[in-house]
């Protein structure tokens, strides 16, 4: 394997001393990818297919049998007011989280990439702190901070002369978005900062000669240069936000009155609270399809070339 690998690589890089047939050389990349693809196929792709199959069946977690119901679950869901509500709430939650998370990450990355700034390491460590915590810990910290009676946020509010608020009652959705953005921005920051560092200095120098302002440089050089990473980052944080609901689970459990009941929460209730695996699988299949659509929309928005740049 080692021998042939090297030879094949050499073939590819232009060497002429190959003793192997072209066919063998062609299969090299697939052999290289095989272990990774096998693991992904079994543990990542199979569950997707399984979820789709299960969505066509009535299957309760606690009962061994299953009955074929066709598309019943789908029609049932789309006539269910709570599911429609969950879709609407999800759109706001995801859009709000992703937009803020990306912008905050971008702003912090721009600050960290500014020229001549000292102590970057220190600041970056401070910015990274939230990302070192798990979802549960993040949620519980915010639960304590947002507490109406004893929370530090209300204490700060009173210091500023405002009345204490019941954040998780009157501002439930914004509150969970803020907690989520606080946690997730670091991820955007890290990806975007590294992209910014890869921009050749000459570009900026040339722009300076042309008399560009800092803002001008940011808009005309930085932003276009980090398009590919931005795309990747947005796709990733969007999918992550759709699929996760840990923060909402702890902070509001979907309430009050369904105002934070995102689709992940809804799925969890169906599958594990009420043991309806078939219904849970249907929701996850719908989420899967939505995720694919969103990915395509992003790629469209950024232009297909952005992807090619990376690929």
């Amino acid at each position: 394997m080692g021998q042939s690998l090297i030879t094949a690589i050499r073939d590819n890089t232009g060497s002429t001393r190959s003793r192997f047939s072209k066919k063998w050389a062609k299969s090299i990349p697939f052999l290289l990818m095989l272990p990774a693809l096998a693991v992904m196929g079994l543990f990542a792709l199979f569950p997707v297919i399984n979820a789709f199959r299960l969505s066509l069946y009535d299957k309760q977690l606690l009962n061994p049998g299953e009955t074929f119901v066709g598309l019943d679950h789908y029609s049932q869901l789309f006539s269910n007011g709570e599911f429609i509500n969950a879709l609407k709430v999800s759109v706001i939650y995801v859009a709000g989280s992703v937009a803020l998370q990306f912008l905050v990450g971008l702003a912090l990355a721009a600050l960290l990439s500014a020229q001549g700034v000292k102590g970057k390491r220190f600041f970056r460590t401070a910015f990274i702190l939230p990302y070192t915590l798990s979802e549960l810990v993040v949620s519980l910290i915010w639960l304590q901070m947002l507490d109406t009676e004893f929370g530090i946020i209300n204490y700060f509010a009173t210091l500023l002369g405002a009345d204490p608020q019941n954040w998780l009652f009157d501002f439930a959705l914004p509150a969970v978005i803020v907690a989520n953005v606080w946690w997730g921005s670091t991820f955007s920051l890290l990806m975007l900062e590294s992209a910014m560092q890869g921009i050749p200095k000459e570009l900026y120098e040339a722009a300076e000669v042309d008399g560009c302002t800092s803002w001008g440089k940011f808009v005309h050089i930085t932003l276009p240069s980090i398009r590919y990473v931005s795309l990747l980052n947005m796709i990733m944080i969007t999918l992550y936000t759709i699929n996760s609901f840990g923060i909402i689970f702890v902070l509001t459990a979907g309430g009050p009155l369904g105002s934070t009941d995102v689709i992940g929460m809804f799925m969890w209730r169906s599958a594990f609270q009420f043991m309806d695996l078939g219904l849970g699988a249907t929701i996850s299949t719908i989420i899967f399809v939505v995720n694919i659509l969103i990915t395509f929309v992003y790629i469209r928005l950024f232009g297909l070339n952005t992807l090619k740049e990376g690929a």
Partner: peptide, 20 residues
């Protein structure tokens, strides 16, 4: 208060225990 709908399971009595 209306806010009771957003209480966690142990909040009501916690409020009692803290004199609220």
């Amino acid at each position: 208060t209306k806010e009771v709908i957003a209480y966690e399971w142990d909040r009501a009595t916690k409020l009692l225990a803290t004199g609220k």
